[in-house]
Amino acid sequence: MPEIHALPNIARNPGVPLQLDWFDQIAVNTPAAERRAATLTTRRTVKKEWQAAWLVNAVRCMDLTTLAGDDTPERVRRLCAKARSPLADHILDGLGLAGLTTGAVCVYPTLVSTAVKALDGTGVPVASVATGFPAGLMPLNLRLAEILYAVDHGADEIDIVITRAHVLDGNWSALYDEVAEMREACGAAHLKAILATGDLKTLRNVYKASMVAMQAGADFIKTSTGKEGVNATLPVSLVMARALRDYGARTGQKIGFKPAGGMKTAKDAIAWQILMKEELGDDWLKPDLFRLGASSMLADIERQLEHHLTGRYAASSRHAIA
């Protein structure tokens, strides 16, 4: 069986000095963005073996995540076992695949060391939320200390949360300085900047916050914590993808994108991949530049793949929970 190998990492984003003129006059046509998002899945459809291939790709781009108040080391070890082998053996055999893993496992800082041990030798990165997740309303020195703690315990990626008030107040220099300090604290670990777009009120704010985070050195921009009232949506993701494209055109730098929260089905997994392909190209269909923060959709993907192979939907109890 062919093996699936991890691709080499994209070069880190060095950032640039704060450039207000890159975004201060930006205008976003909200109805047009909503129309464009609504037609993404109607203009392009994938069926049969092509659908199966897109769903397998979604699995390898997934950040398998547990961020609950009752998380335990045993739950994290179970999640890591699912990350190492996300699909049942008979599905992998039927598809002719081997070596499939998820893109990463994401946990709280205190459980990073557990995840690192459980994933040793697999090549699956460990991501940690930090900086007072999910609200981020902690003094900056404590937020930086949390990053350092997670990195010291082996985290490969840090998912930080920004101070939403900086965006709502238009205090772009404060937002830039905050993200830049977090980027420095990450060291070799990649920084994923969570914008909490459901709290930012307008698509213009989403574009501006995206651009500032990238200028400050974010390696990924991410829609949501999954804890907001509104999490990842296609219109918001479209605006963030346009910001990624504009930043890349100015700097030559490729920045990753991670939608998170609110996505639960295999259909959602395909919709966001179509957005990536149409707006940014095939490079953003690889885990170096695209992650899905939606662990709950894995069960539906597994059911759809089994249906592809057998023509029948299995009971959910047949599949290991993520």
Rank of each mutant, 00 (worst) to 15 (best):
F133Q: 03
V112D: 05
G94M: 09
G121I: 08
V126F: 08
A115M: 12
A104N: 07
A115Q: 04
C106F: 10
V126L: 09
G123F: 12
P125Y: 03
V116C: 09
T114P: 01
A127L: 02
G94T: 10
V129S: 04
G123C: 14
T102K: 13
G121K: 09
T110Y: 12
C106W: 00
G96H: 11
G103A: 15
L97N: 00
A104H: 12
T131H: 06
A130Q: 06
T102Q: 06
V112C: 04
T114D: 09
A98H: 15
L95H: 06
S113C: 11
L92S: 09
T131D: 08
V124S: 00
G103M: 06
L111W: 05
G96I: 10
L119H: 09
V116G: 03
D120R: 06
G132E: 02
F133K: 00
T101I: 10
S128L: 07
L95G: 00
V107R: 08
G103Y: 13
V116T: 11
P109C: 07
Y108A: 11
K117G: 00
V112M: 01
L92H: 03
T101F: 13
A127H: 03
G94C: 08
S113N: 12
K117C: 11
T102M: 14
V105H: 11
A104D: 11
